[in-house]
Simulated scan of single mutants.
Amino acid sequence: MASGYGLNGGPGRCYPFWQEVLGCYVVNSGEGEAGKKKCTPALDDYYECLHHRKEAMRTMKMQVAFRKAEAAHPRENAPKAEQIRSLGLLGKEEEATAVISQL
């Protein structure tokens, strides 16, 4: 788990956080349960380094907020139905049948 060796042989990315947790436990070991509570922030940092849950939650919240903002303000330059028809995509069945009959 916290051997200190990374994938490429150097120190692992979360090893410094693990050292902080161990140091905190060593310093506060005589205080019992109260000492463990003092180490909670260091342990949370270590778990965040391992699993990135807080970062993933923040990213998800930002995506939701972005989607809400997009839905609240529709595109200003969105094409209207008449403009789409004028592109030749709709309402041109006669011309399409003429082209197909020539083939």
Results as ranks from 00 to 15, higher is better:
24 C>A: 15
49 C>T: 04
39 C>L: 05
23 G>F: 04
35 G>A: 02
38 K>M: 12
23 G>A: 04
40 T>V: 14
55 E>L: 07
34 A>S: 14
40 T>Y: 06
55 E>F: 02
49 C>D: 02
29 S>I: 01
41 P>Y: 03
26 V>Y: 00
40 T>Q: 13
54 K>G: 11
51 H>L: 15
30 G>L: 12
31 E>T: 15
29 S>L: 00
52 H>M: 05
47 Y>I: 05
37 K>V: 08
58 R>K: 15
21 V>D: 11
33 E>Y: 01
54 K>C: 06
27 V>F: 15
42 A>G: 09
38 K>G: 03
30 G>D: 08
48 E>T: 15
46 Y>G: 00
44 D>G: 03
33 E>H: 01
51 H>V: 06
20 E>K: 15
59 T>G: 12
36 K>D: 06
31 E>N: 10
22 L>G: 03
32 G>R: 07
44 D>R: 11
29 S>F: 07
54 K>A: 10
20 E>P: 11
20 E>Y: 12
60 M>F: 06
38 K>C: 03
58 R>T: 10
43 L>R: 13
38 K>A: 11
37 K>P: 10
31 E>Y: 12
26 V>L: 04
40 T>G: 08
58 R>E: 08
34 A>P: 08
60 M>C: 01
25 Y>V: 10
59 T>S: 14
55 E>D: 12
37 K>W: 04
42 A>Y: 13
50 L>D: 04
44 D>H: 10
54 K>H: 05
56 A>C: 08
20 E>C: 13
52 H>E: 11
49 C>S: 05
48 E>C: 12
48 E>N: 10
45 D>Q: 10
52 H>R: 04
41 P>E: 05
46 Y>H: 07
50 L>I: 14
60 M>Q: 03
41 P>F: 12
37 K>H: 04
53 R>M: 03
35 G>D: 02
32 G>A: 13
20 E>D: 15
55 E>S: 08
52 H>C: 01
33 E>M: 03
26 V>G: 00
35 G>H: 02
36 K>L: 14
33 E>C: 03
52 H>D: 09
